[in-house]
């Protein structure tokens, strides 16, 4: 039926090309292929309604969804040595940093805020994979140390949402040194007997898992999140065989004893709230009771 193709197709093409489609309006689910309206996705905590697939969540949405009434106070990022290696490949690292800052509107791959979670004061750090793969360098390391110390100072639980490909190569050995450095801060939390809860989100690998992300008192993973030390590509190249299904996924880690639970995003807030309350010996509030706001503190 060639004549149909010849006659109708150009018309369809012309209709399509006339319409302007905003890339951000519709999002495709990587699992089911289903198209979801962005606003619906946002309203659903970036979980695809049909398939339950957990899309990546930006840091601001994460903080908004964690704190009561989306009210929180952000901690400014401490200033750090910039480009210590004077690193350049095809481009200067300093340029790459600038680009990432313009693209994301963030200073580096992390945000820290404090506020109330069901009326209990908590400090939270959120790593952002969209900023240079969430990589751990001087800025993220120093921010985490400051954040954990803020927790100690405020005697509040510390909740971190990890997302990172690992250490930031462009900062070389000084990025690697953030592993022991952040571990020191974790020990300070522990000495202060404050809950340190790690929520592992997609993906968390490399030097981040090999330091503070695997030293939590409680490990929670989001469904389907990739969590591991070596990335799957590296492992495949080393052992030269296909990796088993579900390898390094959140559920796999739970089955192998590395995380306490896999919690869907809708239940995350309540789980965190209950855990923090109980570990802090603070009664779990009745739903819908009036919550204190930041200005009360």
């Amino acid at each position: 039926m060639n004549w149909i193709n010849n006659v109708i197709r150009p018309k369809i093409r012309s209709i399509l090309s006339k319409r302007e489609i905003d890339d951000h309006l519709w999002v495709k689910c990587p699992v089911s292929g289903q198209m979801v309206f962005h606003k619906d996705l946002e309203a659903n905590h970036f979980v695809v309604p049909g398939s339950g697939y957990h899309m990546r969540m930006d840091t601001l949405s994460r903080l908004n969804s964690l704190f009561d009434k989306s009210v929180f106070e952000e901690m400014p990022l401490p200033s750090v040595l910039s480009d210590p290696l004077e690193f350049r490949d095809e481009r200067r690292y300093s340029e790459r940093l600038k680009l990432a800052r313009t693209k994301t509107g963030m200073e580096d791959a992390i945000k820290v805020a404090h506020g109330y979670l069901d009326g209990l004061h908590v400090v939270s750090a959120v790593q952002d994979f969209s900023f240079m793969g969430g990589s751990l360098g001087l800025a993220v390391g120093e921010t985490l140390i400051a954040a954990m110390r803020l927790s100690v100072k405020m005697h509040s639980p510390f909740i971190i949402f990890t997302a990172s490909g690992g250490a930031r190569m462009q900062e070389g050995i000084l990025a690697l040194m953030q592993m022991p450095r952040t571990t020191i801060a974790v020990r300070e939390l522990r000495e202060a007997r404050l809950p340190y809860i790690v929520v592992l989100t997609h993906p968390t690998t490399g030097g981040v898992t090999a330091s503070y992300a695997m030293l939590g008192d409680i490990h929670i993973a989001e469904p389907g999140a990739l969590i591991g030390f070596a990335g799957p590509r590296v492992i495949e190249q080393t052992i030269r065989e296909k990796l088993p299904d579900g390898f390094q996924k959140a559920e796999y880690l739970r089955d192998h004893g590395m995380v306490d639970m896999v919690v869907p995003r809708h239940e995350l807030r309540e789980t965190l709230s209950h855990l923090c309350r109980m570990l802090m010996k603070s009664p779990i509030p009745e739903p819908d009771c009036s919550l204190p706001s930041l200005s009360d503190s």
Binding site: T209, M214, G228, F229, A230, L243, P244, H256
Partner: peptide, 12 residues
């Protein structure tokens, strides 16, 4: 970097 190492919690 291997399957067994990951299985047993290399990072931890």
């Amino acid at each position: 970097p291997g399957v067994g190492a990951e299985e047993r919690g290399q990072s931890e």
